[in-house]
Amino acid sequence: MNINKYPEIHPGKKLFKRVYVAIMLWTVGKAIQVAAKVDKEVKEELAKLPDNFTLRMMVAPEKAFPLFFYAKTLPAFVVDKGLLFYGIQMILHKDKEGKIKYLGADPKGKKIDLNIVFKNIEAAWMVLSFQESTATAYMHDRFVVEGDLVHSLTFVRVLDIVEIFLLPKIIAKLAVKRYPKWAEMSPLRKFVKRVVIYIRAYTF
């Protein structure tokens, strides 16, 4: 048998989805940081997290996503020494005073308390492009949680509120279980917060 007839296959990359997911994670991180400052409900929810708490949302497997797409062409020691960091991630930190800060995408030197991991890029794509709501994605095992499950519930609730702020009703309805009625959240609050969060997330 000529075994060269059956070559080894290195499956490729999904560049567009990588870029999209990375941008969305960045936006979500920034938006939560701003929302925690300007909205009372988000602030109250996040107060349930312990102080000095680091939360990470990422796409698995970490090593499949070197920061630079050309990492493979670099000498091995650069990659091994950890001079590059890996992964499509979003890290949020709650400090001692209870302030929420978006810490970028590099987990190096940080102790992660809660890790929310999308099983693959396709799962992250479906959630972040609102084809699957957070609850549906959880039901479909699209992501797993490392750490205390209770805190991930808080995070999911915050995510829901922020999505209601940021997205037009027609899309937000796909992303959350129940879109709030007037009595639960007034359109004025929604609109003002939407403008404020967008401006501050993209400028600071």
Partner: peptide
């Protein structure tokens, strides 16, 4: 009740 995992699978929020 907000701190329990079973809230995720309930059909209604």
């Amino acid at each position: 009740t907000m701190q329990d995992g079973a809230r995720m699978a309930n059909p209604e929020e």
